[in-house]
Design a protein around this nucleic acid. Structure first.
Length: 259
DNA sequence: ATGACTTGCGCGGCAAGA
């Protein structure tokens, strides 16, 4: 079973890229972030024609997440823990496969910059809610894949220039500590389970020649429950997507599970 | 190099991203 995640930075701008990716890599599940449209504006037809069910949790202009799945899914929208939060950043699906179920979440974790603004405490509080929710999900003892744009650089080897990012919300010690608290619940970073290599990035800024200089950061992650980690076969960053015409600033990350 | 980005919104130029 192949599961991928991709921050597309507007699904309407990136539809042709997504369609080609679905054809080329044939993921069973594709989690999308930053669809940047309302549910009714999501371009469904061509994706459905490739055999995918579509669930969206959209929002006008900003944010928005979706899950595409070849198999049937039972869906929950939104991250529990704050009824006043109106940002569409979390979508969860229980996906039925022949051998059982796999639970998949599409996550767009808040950026948090500027650090001195209200956006940073919102990021940290959102992470606390994700940690609390993950504790409950882990009690189900299912294969669980928390996939998405975490806006967290886990370690210095995951950024081209650690010093340049030292004071950024994506790399501050407090941000990374909270990410470790999440992982330390018992999750496995799928990419790091298969590779210790440095300079493996998932995002390159549009500005200042970041892509040709490989000035990137690794912020898109698939975190696995023990039951999912036991099934892990491969984890790949599809970096070639960044070199295409009119790319997203993020590239897909995908895993194969033996189920 | 007084440079070098891309969205949505909506029709001018700002906010947001990371």
């Amino acid at each position: 079973m192949r599961i991928a995640t991709w921050n597309v930075n507007s699904i309407r701008q990136r539809l042709e890229h997504v369609l080609r990716y679905l054809k080329d890599e044939a993921p069973d599940v594709l989690c999308l972030q930053e669809i940047k449209c309302l549910d009714e504006a999501f371009p469904r037809g061509d994706i459905e024609s490739l055999g995918y069910n579509i669930t969206t949790h959209g929002q006008k202009t900003f944010n928005g997440v979706a899950i595409l799945s070849k198999m049937p899914m039972e869906v929950m929208r939104g991250l529990p823990g704050d009824d006043s939060d109106t940002q569409s950043r979390y979508l969860e699906a229980e996906i039925s496969v022949p051998k059982g179920v796999v639970r998949v979440a599409s996550i767009y974790l808040p950026n948090g910059n500027p650090v001195e603004s209200e956006k940073y405490p919102y990021k940290l509080a959102w992470m606390d809610r994700l940690i609390a929710h993950t504790k409950r999900l882990l009690m189900l003892e299912e294969p669980l894949v928390l996939a998405g744009d975490y806006n967290i650089i886990p370690e210095p080897r995951d950024v081209h220039d650690p010093a340049a990012w030292a004071n950024d919300a994506l790399f501050l010690p407090q941000s990374r500590a909270k990410f470790r608290t999440l992982v330390n619940l018992g999750l496995t970073d799928a990419f790091r389970a298969v590779s210790d290599a440095p300079k493996q990035y998932t995002f390159w800024d549009f500005q200042a020649g970041a892509w040709p200089k490989n000035n990137g950061i690794r912020i898109d992650h698939l975190l696995l429950s023990p039951q999912a980690a036991d099934l892990l076969q491969t984890a790949v960053i599809d970096r070639s997507e960044r070199g295409r015409d009119k790319p997203s600033d993020h590239v897909p990350v995908r895993i194969d599970l033996a189920i």
